[in-house]
Design a protein around this nucleic acid. Sequence first.
DNA 1: TATTGTTATACTCTATAACTATA
DNA 2: TATAGTTATAGAGTATAACAATA
Lengths: 159, 159
Amino acid sequence: MATQEQCAVLADQLRVVVAVGREIGRALPPESPPAMVALLSALDHCGQVRMSKLAERLDIDMSVVSRHVAYAADRGWIDRDPDPLDKRSRLLRLTADGETVLRAASARATDVLADHLSEWPDEDVGQLAALLARLRLSFGDCRPRAHAPRRHTNARYEG
Amino acid sequence: MATQEQCAVLADQLRVVVAVGREIGRALPPESPPAMVALLSALDHCGQVRMSKLAERLDIDMSVVSRHVAYAADRGWIDRDPDPLDKRSRLLRLTADGETVLRAASARATDVLADHLSEWPDEDVGQLAALLARLRLSFGDCRPRAHAPRRHTNARYEG
DNA sequence: TATTGTTATACTCTATAACTATA
DNA sequence: TATAGTTATAGAGTATAACAATA
């Protein structure tokens, strides 16, 4: 079992790695920023899903996903077919155009990563990917979360 | 050397792991949101630094760091002593109060992580932390970046 | 009544540009 | 002339709350 100390170190590393994510994000095409790529990628993995499922998978509030999906649908990257079993819901699916956009963005991200990881041995890259996948599963397992009462944040970085 | 395919998979995993970061961020105290904790943590590691160095380490524009630093300094979490060698600059340092705030926030983050990683063997947690540290180094090596001409993004998720 | 999804609004975080002061 | 830092403004991303339509 992981010690408290180890978890503290890991938390620290995770904080620092967001910078890597930002760096990769800067290389993405303007039309498909990080959040959009995450959306399309999730859809690519899911096949056909409803909003609520997608929001759960992305760990983002459905209201946010709703807006992003609308943006993508407007551009023909996502199809929204009516759900025959529930008229409130629509089934989302990545279109061919959406796949093209996703692939282009993924290529950019991959390039940045490959650029910086040129010295890494194969097995280390594979191991990191595997561990991250497991990390994600460890967090995904407990979802859907009990939707605990959310706090109101109030930090304002202003003069 | 890492293959293109491996990098693509890793890029995918990194995208997904930001959700874990968000989840951890939600557990932080309102007074010290994720960006603030990252700032204090960086300062804790650096000792005494100037703004430009801190911004470089966080991989965030100095204008942003400036505002966050002002927020923290207003609350007594950071000292800003004049740099005797350069009157334009000030040397930043975490105060005792800042350390307290950082520790409280870190404890929350650690708890969330420990909660989800209870089943993980020691060595895997350590290995993940080590690989993330190395990933960060692989990206940090190339900084300070040549400050390439930044594009203007233009995606607007609006109706 | 409860749930799915949308919209309005506000807050966090980041970047660009214009500026001040010093080097 | 160049660099360190600040401030003003705007753009991305997310959350809360109020709402519509359906279950």
